[in-house]
Amino acid sequence: MPRVTEQYIQRRRREILDAARRCFALGGFHATTMDDVIDTAGLSPSVVYRWFRSKDELVLAVVRDTVQGIADAVDETAALEPLPPLGDAIGRIIDATLARVSHDDQDLSALAAHVWTEALQNTDVRELVADLYARIRTSLAELVRRHQSAGTVSADIDADAAARPLFALIPGFLVQRLLLGPEDTASYAAAINSVLRS
């Protein structure tokens, strides 16, 4: 029997996660069934259940994969050289978030709203999201501290406190996008920079 490579394992897992993400974004976590994911993935039930034993396990994997990717983007942005203006940094994070919740040019940003709803009802999802969101706020606080060292943000500001409203700009963009229609991230970032300078 041929040996299964790690690359094959990751590719197959990614196919299932991408199919689940599409289903969850369109129908929500509760309305989506494993059969929906199996049909969307175009795989046999035995293949999907080999990687994910239950829908709950698949939900957690999709949430972890999505939010982890956003947290990674925040970490990368906070460490950028040269140091980006805060608005530009938020714009980069939003672009990375949109890329994370898109597939084959299909906008799946509704997934974010479903994750927030699920976090209110599912303790495992809440703990996972809360841990990753705390990491995001820590990275944003570090970005503020770097700006303070560069003299572009007042040293009198509490960096940890400042990270909270900066973080809120990310889901705030997504909510407005979902309810009011697409918005350009560059103009959003420019508006943030203008407000912060005033």
Rank of each mutant, 00 (worst) to 15 (best):
M1N: 11
P2I: 05
P2W: 01
V4T: 13
T5S: 15
E6L: 05
E6I: 05
Q7G: 07
Y8R: 09
I9M: 08
Q10A: 11
Q10N: 11
R13D: 01
E15Q: 13
E15C: 02
I16H: 05
A19F: 02
A20I: 06
A20N: 07
R21P: 15
R21V: 12
C23S: 03
F24H: 00
L26T: 14
G27S: 13
G28H: 04
F29N: 00
F29K: 00
H30F: 13
A31V: 11
T33V: 00
T33N: 06
M34R: 08
D35T: 14
D35P: 05
D35V: 13
D36R: 00
V37P: 05
I38F: 08
T40H: 00
L43Y: 11
P45D: 03
S46M: 10
S46C: 04
S46L: 06
Y49Q: 05
W51P: 01
R53S: 09
R53D: 13
K55P: 15
K55C: 10
K55L: 08
L58R: 00
V59M: 07
V59F: 12
L60Q: 00
A61W: 01
V63P: 00
R64N: 06
D65Q: 10
V67E: 06
Q68E: 12
A73G: 09
A73T: 01
V74K: 03
E76Q: 13
E76S: 05
E76H: 09
P84M: 01
P84E: 04
P85S: 04
P85I: 02
G87I: 04
I90S: 06
I90N: 07
G91H: 07
R92V: 14
R92A: 06
I94E: 01
A96I: 02
A96V: 02
A96F: 07
T97N: 13
L98I: 00
L98C: 08
R100D: 05
R100L: 07
V101F: 04
S102N: 07
S102E: 10
Q106K: 11
Q106R: 12
D107N: 14
L108K: 00
A110W: 14
L111Q: 03
A112G: 14
A112N: 12
H114N: 00
E118I: 00
L120K: 10
L120H: 14
T123P: 07
D124M: 11
R126C: 13
R126W: 13
V129W: 08
V129M: 06
L132W: 03
L132F: 06
Y133C: 07
I136V: 11
I136F: 05
I136A: 10
T138Y: 10
S139E: 14
L140K: 03
A141N: 02
E142H: 15
E142Y: 15
L143M: 03
R146D: 12
H147T: 09
Q148H: 04
G151S: 11
T152H: 15
V153T: 13
S154G: 09
A155I: 09
D156T: 10
D156Q: 13
I157V: 15
A161I: 09
A162I: 03
A163N: 10
R164G: 05
F167N: 09
F167T: 01
I170H: 09
P171Y: 13
G172N: 05
G172L: 15
L180P: 12
T185L: 05
A186S: 14
S187I: 08
Y188E: 03
A190C: 12
A190H: 09
A191H: 11
N193F: 01
N193Q: 08
R197Y: 04
S198E: 08
S198N: 14
